[in-house]
């Protein structure tokens, strides 16, 4: 039996929330936007050849695991990260680490998570949550999506840790082992901004970053003609689900990132970052308007209420805004 004193706090995004809550536990106060920004979590990619739930994959964030890995590394926090072939080994190790007094972050699949909201119980393997104790085969869980603390049985926990398919977690567990006393987070903030700026405007590949948003806009114009109204609305719905639903805190993480820039401005004493944070906030609201108007096409079958050209034009405007913001951010010193 172990039950660590763990403060449950909800978060907009599972992985940066887990990162924040784990670091908070070790006495290092950091906000969710900071964890997300230092972890360089923001991204955009549109991969039409990679289908997820029968539609092209759109992503507003970096590869799973990167936020924790990057944030801890840049902050000089020592962290342990394990994956296991054998489920029993992974559970033994989890018990051992809990008994040593460390809460542990886990990557899990959501389909068999018994406490998860039913509307989200699809095969999504990139969820993150924290285990803070166990007793007689019951594990105590703090999941940043949930309002309250929850529990899971040993069997169910094995099942979600060994969910299969794309991004299978393979029992991945991670936890900070040593958090230095006086961390100067300023260099980490600057590096995080540079990394994200480079991801968004510095990589010459058409499907990612601001270019990726433009590419999606171009494809969207042809959806109705090429796929018919029903499939077009499903494809659009898939973009919106990735933008608004799977733990993005709204607008595909753009709100979190804006909050991060605002905090960075104060911390680094660079007022121009505050202006960009406001631009990012406006940009996030533009994304939200896009999803609001787009969702009307997903309501009922038949003639779409918004033309796909109109929605694509909105995306172009968003792409221009993001390109402008990140080109400025790339120059941070």
């Amino acid at each position: 039996m172990v039950k660590l004193e763990f403060e449950h706090r909800q978060a907009g995004h599972c992985e940066s929330g887990v990162t924040r809550n784990l670091l908070n536990y070790h006495g290092f106060r950091i906000t969710e936007p900071m964890a997300f920004g230092i972890g360089a979590g923001l991204f955009f990619s549109y991969l039409p050849f990679l289908k997820m739930q029968h539609a092209p994959t759109t992503s507003f964030r970096v590869w799973p695991g990167q936020v924790f890995d990057r944030a801890t590394k840049e902050l000089g926090v020592k962290a342990a990260i394990h994956t296991f072939r054998n489920p029993k080994d992974s559970m033994d190790k989890l018990n051992e680490v809990l008994e040593q007094g460390y809460p542990v972050g886990l990557q899990v699949g959501t389909f068999h998570l018994p406490f998860f909201p039913p509307e989200y119980r699809m095969h999504y393997n990139m969820h993150n949550m924290i285990v803070y104790g166990h007793n007689n085969g019951t594990y105590f869980i703090s999941d940043t999506l949930m309002e309250n603390l929850v529990e899971i049985t040993y069997e169910d926990l094995v099942r979600v840790r060994y969910a299969k398919g794309a991004f299978a977690p393979q029992g991945r567990m991670y936890y900070p082992t040593f958090v230095p006393k006086d961390i100067d987070i300023r260099p980490a903030v600057i590096k995080g901004i540079r990394k994200t700026a480079n991801n968004m405007v510095g990589i010459p590949f058409p499907l990612i970053g601001a270019k990726g948003i433009r590419y999606l806009a171009g494809r969207m114009r042809k959806w109705e003609k090429n796929l018919g109204p029903e499939k077009a609305s499903y494809y659009l719905g898939q973009v919106l689900r990735m933008e608004e639903e799977v733990g993005t805190a709204g607008a595909g993480f753009r709100f979190i990132y804006g909050a991060f820039l605002e905090e960075a401005s104060t911390l680094l004493n660079q007022p121009w970052l505050r202006e960009l944070s406001i631009e990012m906030g406006d940009n996030a609201n533009k994304w939200r308007e896009f999803s609001y108007l787009g969702s009307r096409n997903c309501k009922k079958r038949g003639k779409p209420e918004q033309s796909y050209d109109f929605l694509a034009d909105m995306l172009l405007e968003i792409a221009n805004r993001e390109e402008k913001i990140f080109k400025k951010l790339a120059l941070i010193k």
Binding site: Q10, E119, E147
Partner: peptide
């Protein structure tokens, strides 16, 4: 869907960035 309230971020020029817990 009213199973669980989630945390969302919001922005407006008056109030800046805020967080709120509500249903989707």
């Amino acid at each position: 869907y009213t199973y669980n309230r989630e945390l969302f971020y919001h922005f407006d020029r008056e109030k800046g960035f805020t967080q709120a817990v509500h249903y989707q």
